[in-house]
Design a protein around this nucleic acid. Structure first.
Lengths: 198, 198
DNA sequence: GTCTATATCCTGATAGAC
DNA sequence: GTCTATCAGGATATAGAC
């Protein structure tokens, strides 16, 4: 994402973005001023405006990065033509966990957006499209008989990704391997907390 | 919660609180000004200050109501002396879903708090205490053999309540009975999405 | 790329009349 | 219980020098 910085002082857009996202996540977007962002970089507010058009652009860029990751995961899953719906859904859960963990600050920010501006409304719309596709996968897996038929597909989809998305509330890279976590999440989602008798 | 309003104009604290919480949830606490709250009630900002000492007090009262509900649920579960750890955990999940749905706006607000002030830090501390107790329950259920031993108790507890708490992102009272939803959540959490062979 | 200085507006909160 | 008027501080954003 970042081109190698060639020597010397000063920051680039990626540095400003990273600093902003960190603060947005820690204190909230609205509670973070451009001056906070500037001071966290050791520069002045005006200097920040040299790199970025405005506060909203920081938000738009950051949540766009998160949405692109999730869309990529969905695109990969769509490509699994020979797989069952259950396998596709399991793969989507696993890939989503990996996106959440690898782009943690960006996805964290995305999941806190409330639709307060055009930028945020766009993000919510893209999230809704993702959710609808998850619901369709659940429905298809039910038709296969590989997911219990006694739950509403939309509800199951929401609870499933509610669990997945809740990772952003506590996960940190040093708190364990992302691949193992993806396995745990998938196991709990599809097989439950109770032991399965083999 | 509200005494029957005896005739005529003017609002009371509960009305101001309800209006504030609605806006806090829709746009975020920081993005909501006291003037927004006032205008949504059809009065001026100064009139709001007649009912409430300040913006923080609105937040404190609202999230206190949510925390009290969750603490009550935990207290009930602690009282089940004859129950297994699994039964206690299942009961806690069910009661938590009922608290989330019955106090939806307050719990929604609580779950979005980031620790930006003394009020918010207090709330986070009470949430942490709740989480620790859930982890202890999971551990006890594992010791009984009623929860799979291959997952870290703290991780399982977080994912479990991540799923439960995600309700606030989409539930609305007219979207189905809360008791049924609690049953669905419990079934998915403990038995998973896959069908169980009886 | 960063700075100082400034414009403009909105914020939470208070005083005091009706 | 609501109003008008007001305050001090902080917000986003811009202009222009270095």
């Amino acid at each position: 994402m970042t081109l190698p910085r060639r020597g010397r002082p000063g920051h680039d857009l990626d540095a400003v973005l990273a600093a902003a996202v960190t603060l947005f996540n820690a204190r909230g977007y609205d509670a973070t001023s451009m001056d906070d962002v500037a001071r966290s970089l050791g520069i002045t507010k005006s200097s920040v405006y040299h790199h970025v058009r405005g506060k909203q652009e920081l938000l738009r860029t950051a949540i766009g990065h998160a949405l692109d990751g999730l869309d990529d995961a969905m695109t990969q899953v769509r490509g699994l033509a020979d797989a069952t719906a259950l396998e596709r859904l399991e793969t989507l859960v696993r890939l989503s966990v990996l996106v959440l963990t690898s782009r943690l600050p960006y996805v964290t920010l995305l999941l806190r957006v409330r639709g307060n501006s055009a930028v945020e409304l766009d993000a919510l719309q893209r999230r809704r499209a993702f959710d609808h596709e998850v619901t369709a996968l659940v429905k298809a897996a039910q038709a296969e008989g590989s997911i219990r038929p006694d739950v509403d597909p939309a509800t199951a989809a929401r609870l499933l990704f509610g669990m997945v998305n809740s990772l952003v509330e506590w996960y940190s890279p040093d708190r364990g391997n992302a691949g193992e976590l993806a396995t745990t999440v998938t196991a709990l989602a599809f097989d439950g907390l109770r032991p399965r008798s083999p």
